[in-house]
């Protein structure tokens, strides 16, 4: 990589001064060491300190800098600038209210996450030492516990766009299955009851946008399928 100019088209909206959002064309010169989209955003912000976005760990584990990049949701810190077609079009995550520029109000997303009781439920008195779990049982949690709650998946899901208030969404359902799959959890039945609803779970139509965009390579659709399998197993 060398020094290069990169063109951007960025969604801008400041509720304090703009009547309506607009797309701003802006370009920035990048150093050879600038690999990731977040590096470019940092450079852009040095030029114009009003450009607003969330960011923290810059290594893809905190889930702050999710945005819509050239039409596809992803993390700025894990996206190679040179893999993107220019002008690079940056928009906030779709389907959530925009607060400012690339910052969205994630209340609804977290509300759904919280609605599945995202914590281990085990009412036995805690033993002196760790609860035992076989490596095979532990393996069931792989591909589930790694979720970083960036919301790339839920905000790419048409079912979540139409019913963000009622459909739990891929991230929340992945978390739900994380606890259902945990051998230490004792609330499987309640968790299934909690999801048996035409909106909460069955709005998932296996469109699989969630799988397509997950920056951690997780598969919420598969987890949702396993929840349905368990419901079937319980019902028949």
């Amino acid at each position: 990589m060398s020094k290069r100019m990169v063109q951007f088209s960025i969604y801008r909206y400041d509720p304090d001064k703009d009547d309506a959002p607009y797309m701003q064309d802006i370009s920035v010169e990048l150093e050879p060491t600038d690999r990731k989209l977040l590096d470019a955003l940092t450079k852009l912000k040095a030029k114009d300190d009003a450009i607003s976005y969330r960011r923290s760990c810059r290594e893809g584990v905190c889930g702050s800098d999710a945005m819509n990049i050239n039409g596809k949701n992803g993390l700025a810190c894990l996206t190679d600038i040179d893999s993107l077609k220019q002008p690079i079009v940056l928009r906030p995550l779709p389907g959530l209210p925009v607060i400012r520029d690339l910052i969205v109000d994630m209340t609804q997303f977290f509300k759904q996450y919280h609605s599945i009781k995202p914590y281990l439920i085990n009412n036995d008195p805690p033993p002196e030492r760790e609860r035992l779990q076989s490596p095979e049982d532990r393996e069931e949690l792989n591909g589930l516990y790694e979720c970083i709650l960036c919301a790339c998946c839920s905000t790419s899901c048409p079912s979540f766009w139409w019913n963000p208030d009622k459909f739990v969404g891929p991230a929340g359902l992945l978390a739900a299955y994380r606890f259902i799959a945990d051998t230490r959890d004792q609330a499987t039945s309640e968790r299934l009851d909690n999801l048996e609803d035409p909106y909460r779970l069955f709005r998932c139509h296996s469109i699989m946008n969630c799988v397509d965009v997950c920056p951690k390579g997780l598969n919420p659709t598969k987890a949702i399928g396993k929840i349905k399998d368990m419901m079937v197993a319980r019902a028949v």
Binding site: L120, N122, P135, L141, D182, D185
Partner: peptide, 19 residues
């Protein structure tokens, strides 16, 4: 650390099921 395990932290396991 044991408390964390009780909170549900998904520690890797040894063959006999311990952390």
């Amino acid at each position: 650390v044991v408390e964390l395990e009780h909170y549900g932290m998904p520690f890797d396991r040894t063959d006999d099921g311990k952390i």
